[in-house]
Nucleic acid binder design. Structure first.
Length: 465
RNA sequence: GCCGAGGUAACAUAGAGGCUAUGUGGCGGACUGCAGAUCCGCAUACGGGUGUUCAAAUCUCCCCCUCGGCUCCA
């Protein structure tokens, strides 16, 4: 099966193939390091985590880079306000980012470049743009000359003329044209700054991504991702700068994720309607949060609300139950063969088939639900060890991408097991004596401890919540 | 104004020219001492109007509505 991805550049689904061999360079815009990450950042991180995992599953050798930008306005504002060095602010929020995303099961990228650590390269790149005639200095600042490039707006599908006509931005008199954007800014009083040939100052917003992505992935690479709000101007400008620098096509596939909404508005810092990852994780299991994020195709927006999270918890629990039943049944299942292994293999094919269509996790999850139902029926019909092992393999495949299941009982449960055997034994005796008052009391008290006891046809089952 | 994404049953999401979806919730069964879990069944769909077709949620054309971006933003 071949993977197809939706490329923002062409607006179409395209067959995925690396520029050469099976190596894939993947760059995703991370965060600005001045505050805790919110659910919108989580959506992005989880989305591209899954994409990265699936590319690896498809056999590609992926180099994954996520950047931290720590030299934009918000960071500078914050460092001044808190009266701490920029470096300290940067480190703090990089740490928080890793904690939050780690909790959500996001695998570490290979490289996390930080903008302020690449000042030398950034300044060199700006100088090179000036030398090549793509940028100009004006009053200690440097601007990118949008009229100097042949292609404009190819990612966001805009025409330069129309943009010029409808320019909303007040024209800065230092700029030659309204669409020109800043590569190097003068410092303001009290701001952190770096020495440059033009002034004491700092880079503009877009240049760091061009510099860092090309440094670690080469002048041309396969995948660049981010949220849709970055298409214009951020990614558009990145393309112009990068291609002006290298003279080569910058990125082959542009992948953009839909935004996280609250009500009908997008979740963002500036609208102050955000929920931080930390706050959400106080109330919800990280696996549930991750499942919630993956239950909608990545390119679509997701509305953040309590009801949706509660539904996600319920739905994920359904699959986890099937998995738990399989784990339990495995302990007593006899050897033997049946055709269930074939069903499990078919389920994996369906899952991959869904993922092959632009990482359609929603459809992939639907196939996992179908399989869970089959598995439940199978378990009640007298399963064999090999059939159950095949089912476990399917769940391992699911989890390798989605990472929302508990594939093994926790150590806690192992320790409790002998104790639970005793308690269950006593309760079974009470039930045999039709002393349901005592049986219920035992069950209720266990529940108060977070241990759920369920009577099934094969005898009682229990698990720790 | 320009660019883009959408409108699918009660709700949330997939899909996509014939094979009628997935989850949550609802109703009715099975299994249970009860509870839970699980299984079986039922109901409620493709914004509106045109056309193409043997056949249209899916393709044409037109219209209506929602949302996002165009300014910092994953």
């Amino acid at each position: 099966m071949t993977l197809r991805v939706h490329n923002t550049m062409t607006g179409q689904m395209e067959e995925f193939s690396p520029l050469e061999g099976n190596k894939v360079g993947m760059y995703v815009c991370g965060i600005n390091t001045y505050d805790d990450s919110h659910m919108g950042h989580a959506k992005s991180a989880v989305t591209f985590d899954v994409i990265r995992r699936y590319l690896v599953r498809k056999g590609y050798q992926v180099t994954y880079v996520i950047n931290f930008t720590d030299i934009e306005d918000h960071c500078i504002e914050r460092t001044i306000k808190l009266g701490i060095p920029l470096e300290q602010l940067t480190e703090k929020y990089i740490g928080e980012y890793h904690r939050d995303m780690g909790a959500l099961g996001v695998k570490r990228a290979d490289i996390y470049p930080v903008a302020s650590h690449h000042m030398k390269e950034i300044i060199q790149a700006i100088q090179k743009l000036i030398d090549k005639g793509f940028a100009y200095e004006s009053g200690g600042e440097v601007y990118f000359d949008v009229m100097a490039v042949a292609e404009f707006g190819k990612l966001s599908h805009r025409k330069r003329d129309e943009m010029l006509a409808g320019a909303r931005i007040a024209v800065d008199e230092r700029k030659r044209g309204p669409l020109d954007f800043v590569l190097w800014k003068n410092k303001k009083e009290g701001e952190p700054f770096w020495e440059s040939p033009w002034s004491e100052g700092r880079p503009g917003w877009h240049i760091e991504c061009s510099v860092m992505s090309m440094k670690y992935l080469g002048e041309s690479f396969e995948v660049h991702g981010g949220g849709t709000e970055l298409v214009f101007p951020h990614h558009e400008n990145e393309i112009m700068q990068s291609e002006a620098l290298s003279g080569k096509p910058f990125v082959k596939y542009w992948l953009h994720g839909g935004l996280m909404n609250v009500g009908s508005e997008k979740m963002s810092k500036s609208l102050n309607n955000f929920f931080t990852i930390k706050d959400v994780l106080k109330e919800y299991d990280p696996l549930v949060v991750r499942f919630f994020l993956l239950n909608t195709h990545y390119r679509k927006p997701i509305d953040f609300n309590q009801k949706a999270l509660a539904e996600a918890a319920q739905a994920l629990g359904r699959m986890q139950n099937a998995l738990d039943s399989a784990i339990a049944a495995l302990k007593t299942a006899p050897e033997g063969t049946d055709d269930f292994a074939e069903k499990a293999a078919e389920a994996i094919r369906k899952f991959d088939g869904a993922m092959d269509e632009d990482f359609n996790t929603r459809d992939a999850i639907a196939s996992a639900f179908d399989f869970s139902k089959e598995l439940n029926k199978y378990i009640e019909s007298g399963p064999t060890r090999s059939g159950l092992e095949a089912a476990m393999e399917a769940f391992r495949v699911y989890d390798g991408i989605l990472s929302v299941f508990r594939l093994e009982k926790g150590t806690q449960e192992h320790m409790l097991a002998p104790l639970m055997d005793i308690i269950i034994d006593i309760r079974q005796k009470a039930r045999a004596d039709r002393d349901f008052r005592l049986a219920d009391e035992i069950r209720d008290k266990l529940k108060a401890l977070g241990i759920v006891l369920e009577d099934s046809a094969d005898g009682p089952r229990w698990k720790v919540l």
